[in-house]
Simulated scan of single mutants.
Amino acid sequence: MNAIQPSRPPSQPIQKRRAVPRPKRHLRQRSYQVMALESTAKIAVNLAVTAIAASALAQLLPYHWLQQEKLREISTEVKLMEGHVNGLQAKFGRNFDPQQTKTIMQEQGYRFDPSQRRVVLMNQDRQEDEQTESSP
Rank of each mutant, 00 (worst) to 15 (best):
A36N: 02
Q89H: 07
Q131H: 13
L37E: 13
I43Y: 06
A44L: 12
N123H: 01
E128N: 07
T40A: 09
P10L: 01
T40Y: 15
R28C: 12
N95F: 14
L71R: 05
I14A: 00
H26M: 14
T132V: 10
R72Y: 10
D129L: 14
A48V: 07
M1R: 03
Q89N: 07
S115R: 12
H84N: 06
L47G: 06
S55A: 13
Q100Y: 10
K102C: 04
E130Y: 13
N86D: 06
R17K: 08
I4V: 07
Q108V: 14
E73W: 12
R22L: 10
K42I: 15
Q5K: 09
I104S: 00
R25A: 07
R22H: 05
S135T: 12
K70A: 06
F92A: 01
R18Y: 12
A19T: 14
G93L: 07
P6Y: 09
L60M: 10
I4P: 04
E38R: 06
A54D: 11
V49W: 15
A56C: 07
A51W: 13
E128Q: 06
P9Y: 00
T103Q: 09
K24Q: 08
Q106E: 09
T132H: 03
Q33M: 10
L88P: 03
L27R: 11
E73M: 08
M81S: 02
S31Q: 09
L71W: 09
A53E: 10
V120P: 05
S115P: 08
E77S: 14
N123F: 01
R25T: 12
I74D: 02
W65D: 13
I104C: 00
Q5T: 11
R94F: 15
F92K: 02
N95Q: 05
G87W: 08
T103K: 10
N95H: 08
M35L: 14
Q12L: 02
R111L: 11
V85Q: 00
L47H: 11
T40H: 08
N2W: 11
Q29M: 09
L47I: 15
A51G: 02
P114I: 03
Y32A: 05
E69A: 14
T103P: 01
P6V: 09
N46H: 07
G109D: 06
P23T: 02
H84I: 11
R126W: 15
A3C: 04
T76S: 02
V78S: 00
F96C: 00
S7G: 01
Y110P: 02
T40I: 15
P9K: 00
S135W: 14
P98S: 02
V85F: 07
V34K: 02
K91T: 12
Q108Y: 15
Q100S: 05
S11A: 04
E69C: 13
H64F: 15
T50V: 06
N123Y: 01
Y110H: 09
A90D: 05
A53Q: 06
E133C: 04
P136E: 04
R72F: 09
M122L: 12
